[in-house]
Simulated scan of single mutants.
Amino acid sequence: MLTIGCHLSSSKGYLAMGKEAVSIGANTFQFFTRNPRGSKAKAIDEADVAAFLSYSKEHGIERILAHAPYTLNPCSKDAHTREFAWMTMADDLKRMEYTPGNCYNFHPGSHTGQGAEEGIRLISEMLNEILKPEQTTTVLLETMAGKGTEVGRSFEELAAILERVELKDHMGVCLDTCHVYDAGYDIVDHLDDVLEGFDRVVGLSKLKAVHLNDSKNPFESHKDRHEKIGEGSLGLAAFERIVTHPALAGLPFYLETPNELDGYAKEIALLRGFVK
């Protein structure tokens, strides 16, 4: 069975997100741990979490994905910005243990002119500081489109970060279809080759989640503008190949397309129809 969901607002709590997911035919979902453009996080409501964990078992919701705020930049040349990233992620990972065994995704960051090698060093340094042996959460590096000074624009850059992390079992990758296409990986006409390349450089065992997004921009544009499924430069046929590819079987898929709930429901139904 296809594990698929979309990005939901966490403002109403875990149980509300679970019920929204079920209402649109989803069996997973993604959410921001806090304001995506800020630093504030709501206090954990333990009663709400307990109710959600019970509800999720009853309705087959598995492997939810938390997304770090966009303001995190662990490889900035500004020390205060790096410190904010470290403190925020450390706090988020503590909060994630209320819903154990799930994943936490973040954008690796922008090196702000220091060079990719220095950015890689700073990101891995942060991860080595905050990852704990006892945590149950897997931290995912997201593949990036390569705009500006983004780190993570290539599989090689992601592999370099992972190689430097000491607690490797706590790390993985989230592949974003819009981002990798914009970065120059042709998942439309050469999906097999891209996945073989990922396996060779990073390892498919490290691939833990997929963001499903079409792109408003052409191939290798190095931009990052998501489009609804089948309405962008990737096209609908590409998504049928992605959700049915044997190498991706069993992975959770998360929609981040420009939709409201009814639009997500239609996309989920559409993509489920491809899986026999």
Rank of each mutant, 00 (worst) to 15 (best):
P258R: 10
V210P: 02
A79D: 06
G273Q: 04
T177I: 08
A68W: 03
K266D: 12
C103N: 10
E129N: 13
M144Y: 04
H211S: 08
E62Y: 06
E62D: 10
N35S: 15
A249P: 09
D199P: 09
N102P: 04
T33P: 07
K19C: 07
A265P: 01
D214G: 09
G109Y: 02
K266N: 10
L2I: 14
Y181K: 06
H211N: 07
K223F: 11
D189S: 15
T71D: 03
D182G: 11
I120G: 11
R225H: 13
R121S: 13
N73G: 03
E267N: 10
K57S: 14
H211D: 05
L167M: 08
G119T: 13
K12D: 07
Y70M: 05
S9F: 05
T257A: 13
T244S: 00
H245N: 02
H67T: 03
F52I: 06
N73H: 00
A90G: 11
R121A: 14
P108R: 01
S215P: 04
R153I: 01
D193K: 14
I187E: 08
L234R: 07
I64R: 01
E117I: 13
D78E: 08
V180N: 05
I161N: 05
V139M: 01
T177M: 05
S233D: 14
K168C: 12
L207N: 02
D224L: 11
A238D: 07
L251W: 02
L261A: 15
V151L: 02
N35A: 13
T137A: 01
E118Q: 15
S221K: 10
N128M: 01
S110D: 06
G109C: 01
G115D: 11
T143P: 02
A249T: 15
L53W: 01
L207Y: 00
D92R: 09
R225G: 10
E240M: 09
R37K: 14
G115L: 12
V275Y: 00
L72E: 12
K266W: 04
G5T: 10
D199C: 10
T136N: 08
G38W: 03
E62H: 12
I120T: 12
Q135F: 08
T33W: 02
P74A: 00
